[in-house]
Structures are given as structure tokens and as C-alpha cells.
Design a protein around this nucleic acid. Structure first.
Lengths: 173, 173, 173, 173
DNA sequence: TATGAATGAGTATTCATTCAT
DNA sequence: GATGAATGAATACTCATTCAT
């Protein structure tokens, strides 16, 4: 990948995450990336193509991020790892994950089954640990993690810090 | 309020909820409302004014919706009422609440302190019921309710139905 | 029809006739018409819609122009009228007819059956006058008239003037 | 001439003939020719240079095509040869000749004197054969041939087939 | 000779907004 | 209050052309 192509991706990520896809003109992306506007279209075909590239990139990284949870064999550690996950995201990657949540609200891109493997794993863990209604517990924890992630991405990790230990204790992991 | 002004509000609500604020042109709103485009600006000044009107309307209704929780004196009933709240939203009001969540993602309108009174009430209830970390429990439940609301608004109440009794039992209310 | 809408039609006609449809930017049309570029799209939807409006207008006028030939009952007069037709076009209408011929070369708009009624009438006239192969004579004369029209529209009527009497004598009408 | 240069010429000819000069982007030509876009400019300087090359090529071939008519000494054969000419064009050369007629409508390239030698020759032939107004007869036949050529290039030779013998008989050649 | 990344001026089109009626 | 013609700044996207390699 050329330098300029990466510049475009970076600029788009930052602006889409901050202002949203629809509110970000390609001219602004080009300016921030220090390239001509035309280059965006040479590389990505159209504006949606640029978003698509960002999404595909994100899916790969989401997979990498969740792999240690999915492949964990100790049920307690599964729960522990998913709870600590949002607290360990590097600040430099906030834009990246912010965009993911923003996209959930731009309907056509939302793929609700993306989290299926994680939820299945959580359900397995809860089942192993003898919880009643492991499927519901899995869905619930998944949603909790989602909500906390959003809060952290918005306001930083500090205001949520006490939450980590609270949850670890609550789930006894 | 005149008929036509209400038509505009209805049309805008529906379209903003479906496509988002930025992706909805005033021309489309006017068309769907069956009025001239100019009338939107006569009544609301500009496009943001129209959104503002919708938001203010929503804040009022949010207050009304939460009042029975805020003014409940039995702590168990506080928890019970907040859990059952998202399951009792009328389908005809989905657009209305969808828009609220969408707006959270268009930064400048988001007011994170809006939920403070509810969270305080929940904290009080958890405290009364002898929970450890009542503040954290309150924040957690608030986030859970948020997440479930989103799921219900997106996919309807059915796929989440089992969740209601699950939570009621979990919190023993 | 408002003034400005007519201005657009006039400007477009002149520019399309001179430079061709593809080589004429809407910005140039707007400038020459003394209106904002946006107005073109309010009135005609898109650039093709503008061309379409011009074409429909032309079809009406083509019908009016040919009516005296089609409804002539004397076969000799049919031939005479079609021959004199291109020589009697008013100079102020040259752009209008030029565009028609230009369009024949922008494939998708060409409707080869448009001239059927005229050709049938000519065939009838030649048949009445005892020509061998009246259909071929009709097609031939139609093509001759086409060619002469093009020459006249390009270079004016003078260089072709001698042609009128030449043809009238040749066909003995 | 290198392979690639010829590929460009072929692709441009086909696309210009089909869609017109203005409506054909150099990128499309490059793609169809299987070369980089830059190469077009290396070989032909600019897009007009490419068209120019095609036109010059065409003028040479037009000369070759008309040579047997121009150098024919029997006046009857001159007429006969010019009439049969458009019916004998090989289908593989249609694009080539189509472009010629298209160019006539993109003003600046049109050179109306190009056909002068042919018209002079026809006038001579008609004069030899004792026609009244040989100049007019020459112009007329030239225009007829033009029209028929256009019809053949557009719809193929079949629908016009009967026209050949019709004209040969009409001119008694 | 040939490529392909890059540009910048243009191109059709959209859109929030104004204003005379 | 209500309309609809009109605007002008933006917007996504195209295209001929350049240039380093």
C-alpha cells in the first residue's frame, strides 16, 4: 500500500469517527490527507468504497482482538478476558473502534451476526460455570461490554475504571 | 400547532429515524409532509431548528416516561419498572425513540447528564435493597436498559421477550 | 412556462446545436441563460431531461412542418412541397433543426420510424404519378431532402439555391 | 508501428464510432486497448492527437477507395462505380467509416472541400453523358451516396439492397 | 517504450435557504 | 400562513494530462 493511500485511510477514519460518514465531505478527507480529491476515487472507487475498506480492515482487527477470548479454554478466563477487553484498548485506536459503533447506526452496513461466535463462546462459558439461562447471560454480558466500550470511547477509560473490578467481582472471575 | 406544522414534524421524525439527520434532505421531508419546502423554514428557521424541536419534544416525553420510575417509593418496584419499561414501548413510538439513540451519535447534541436523575434513583433503590456498590449497579442497569432498548427498537420486541423475565428474576424483583 | 425556463431552453438549444450535447457543460448553459445552474435541474431534472424537452418540442414542430405535405391531395404538389420545404426554413430556426440532425448521431435518441408517414405519402404520390418503384423513389427523395437540409443548415440557403429549381424540373412538378 | 500503438488506434476507433469522441474517456480506450493510460499521451500527445491520427488514416483510405472512380475513363462506369461503392464496404470496416460521418458533426474537423475531386469527376461524367445541369447532378448524386452510406452503416446492407439496382437503372448505367 | 500513481480543473447534481407573491 | 421559483455554495465524482520510475 502506498503512503498516500494510507494517508487517505487515516484521514477518513479520523473524520468519519468524529463527524460521521454522511457529514464528512471527500474534499475534507483529501485536504487532511494531503492529497488531491481525485486520488480518493482512484484508490477506492467512490466514497462508500472508502468506508468499505475501513470496515473490512476493522473486521480483521476485531477478529484479532477477540481471538484470545474465543480460543480460551478456561470458562472463568473467558469471562474475565471479555470484561477486561474494553479497558485495554489503546487510546491511539479509539477512532478505529468509534467508527465501528457509529456504523451500527448507519443501517445498511450493520451485520448483527458478526458477534455470534463471541456470544456462543460466552454462552458456553456460563453453561460450564453452572449459570441458569446461559444464553441470556451471554447476551446480557455482550451488551454490557458494548455499552461500556461506548462509554470508554466517548469519555476515556478513567470515569469507567471502577467498573472493571466491579464486574470481575460480580461475575466472580 | 397547525396541521401542516405537525405533518412536518412527523415526516422529519420518520426520515431522521430511518436515514439519519445528515442523510435526509429537507426536500424529502417537505414532500412526505405534503407541504412546500419553504414552510419548513418558516416554522423552524432552519434544518437544525427542526431537529431541535424534535429533540425538545423527546425530552418532554422522556420525562413523562421516566416519571413513574422516579416517583416510585418502593425500591423493588423501581427496579421492576425500569426493567419492564423498554418492553412496553408502543410500536407506533419506535421512530420517536430510535431518533433519540441516533442523536447520541451525532455528538454535539448529546447531553450525558440527561439520565442523572434516573441513575440516582436506581442507586438509591439498590442501596435500599442492600446491594454492594449501588452506584455501579445503577450505572450498569442503566446501560443494560439502554442496550436492550436499542435491540428492541431495531428488531422488535419478540427476539428480546425472554430477557424481561430473565432480568426480573436476576434482580429478584 | 416561466421566462427563466424558456431562457434555459433557448440557451441549451443554441449550445447543443453548435457544440453538441456532450461537449456542452450545464454551467455554460446556465451562464448563457442568465440563471443559476441549479435551476436547470429544478426544471428538467437532469441534463438529459433538458435535451428530452428540446426533442419533444422538436417533434411537435416537425409534425406541424410536415402537415401541409401529409394532407396535400394533389400528388404533384406533394413532391413540390417537400422539395421546397428545406429552402423555406427561417434562419432563426436553424439551431432548432440543426439539433435534430445532430441527435441522429447520438444513437439512443434516434427513432428511425419518425419519418414513416412522410415516406408513405411520398410513395403514394410517386405511385399516382406513374413512377416505377414508388417506394424506392420515396426513400430516395426523402434522403435527398435530408442531405439538402443538412447542407442548408450548415452553409446557409444561398449555395444550394440553384438546387431547388433543379429538383423541381427533374421531378417535373 | 508497435503493437500497442495499433491497439490504441483500434480501441479508439471502435469507441469513437460507437459513443462519439466527446463521450469516450481516454481511460476507457486504454482499458480496451490493454495499455496504460499514459501510453496514449506518449504516442499521440493528447486526445485530439489520437483523433487526428484516425482522421488522417481515414483520409488516406478514402483516397484509395475513391481512386478507381477518379481514374475511371468511361463516364458510365464512373457513375456505376460510385453507386456500387457503399454497397461493397466490408463489414469489418464499418466502424472506420462510421467515425467519418460522426466527425462531420463535430464541426471543427469538417473539411467540406474534401469531396471536391469526386464531385468534379461526377460532373464531368454527367456532362459527357449529356445531362442537363451536370454540376447539380453531381452534387445530387454525391449527397445520395452519402445518405445511403449512412443508412448502410447504421442498419447494414440488407435493407438497402434493392436500392443499388434501382439507382443503376435510374441512371441507366 | 511503458507503467501507474497522482493531479487539478471541471462536471453533473444536490441541498439548505431566501424571497416575492 | 403557505407556495414555489430561484439561488449559490457544496458535493461526489470524472477526466485529460503529467511525471517519476
Amino acid at each position: 500500500m502506498t503512503d498516500k493511500k494510507e494517508n487517505i485511510l487515516h484521514a477518513a477514519l479520523e473524520l468519519f469517527a468524529k463527524d460521521g460518514y454522511n457529514a464528512t465531505p471527500t474534499s475534507k478527507i483529501a485536504k487532511q490527507a494531503g492529497v488531491s480529491e481525485g486520488l480518493i476515487f482512484r484508490h477506492f472507487g467512490n466514497k462508500k468504497g472508502l468506508l468499505q475498506a475501513l470496515i473490512e480492515d476493522a473486521e480483521t482487527r476485531m477478529g484479532e482482538l477477540l481471538a484470545p477470548v474465543i480460543f480460551e479454554s478456561d470458562p472463568k478466563m473467558v469471562i474475565r478476558k471479555i470484561i477486561t477487553l474494553p479497558f485495554s484498548i489503546d487510546r491511539s485506536e479509539y477512532d478505529f473502534w468509534k467508527l465501528q459503533f457509529k456504523i451500527k447506526w448507519e443501517e445498511e452496513y450493520n451485520n448483527p451476526n458478526k458477534m455470534k461466535p463471541l456470544i456462543d463462546k460466552l454462552a458456553w462459558a456460563f453453561s460450564e460455570l453452572g449459570f441458569d439461562g446461559p444464553e441470556e447471560e451471554a447476551l446480557l454480558l455482550n451488551q454490557i461490554i458494548d455499552s461500556i466500550s461506548i462509554s470508554i470511547l466517548r469519555d476515556g477509560v478513567e470515569p469507567q475504571a471502577s467498573f472493571q473490578s466491579f464486574l470481575l467481582e460480580k461475575y466472580n472471575v
